[in-house]
Simulated assay, not measured.
Amino acid sequence: MKALLPVLLIALLSACGESSSTSAASGEQCGVYAIGPNQIKEILKSQQAEPAPGRTAKADLPAEFPPELLDPQGYYRGMAVYCTVEEARKALVDQKHADWGVYELTSDWASNVYKADDGANHLSKNATIKQAVE
Rank of each mutant, 00 (worst) to 15 (best):
A24T: 07
K96R: 06
A88C: 12
V81A: 05
L105R: 06
P37Q: 00
F65G: 08
A116V: 02
L13F: 06
K125D: 12
S124W: 06
K45G: 10
G101N: 03
A98Q: 12
A24G: 06
S107W: 10
G74D: 01
A80C: 03
A80E: 14
L69Y: 04
N121S: 02
I40C: 02
S111Q: 10
V81T: 09
A63K: 15
I40G: 01
V113T: 09
A91C: 11
A132S: 08
T84D: 12
K115T: 14
M79I: 14
G36F: 13
Q29I: 12
G119R: 08
Y33K: 13
Y76D: 09
V81M: 07
S124N: 05
S20D: 05
E104N: 02
A3M: 12
A91I: 11
E134M: 11
K96S: 08
A25P: 00
V133A: 10
S14N: 11
A57M: 04
C30G: 10
Y103R: 06
W100E: 01
E64W: 01
K58Q: 13
Y82T: 02
N121I: 09
S19D: 02
L61D: 11
D94P: 15
D60H: 08
G27S: 07
E87I: 01
R55Q: 08
E28C: 06
G78H: 05
G78Q: 07
A63N: 12
A52H: 06
S19L: 04
A120K: 01
G54I: 09
N38K: 15
S107I: 10
Q47T: 06
G119K: 07
T22Y: 14
P53Y: 12
T106W: 01
E64H: 04
A3T: 13
I10D: 07
E50D: 10
S107R: 01
G17A: 11
A24Q: 12
E18T: 08
I129V: 10
C83F: 12
I10V: 14
A127T: 13
A132C: 03
D60F: 15
S19E: 02
Q48L: 01
N112S: 06
A80M: 05
N126C: 04
L5Q: 09
Y75Q: 09
R55Y: 13
D94K: 05
Q95C: 14
S111N: 09
E104S: 06
L44D: 15
S46Y: 15
A34I: 11
H97I: 05
H97A: 02
S23L: 04
E68K: 10
S26V: 08
A49Y: 14
L8H: 14
G54M: 13
Q48T: 07
W100F: 06
Q131E: 07
L8E: 00
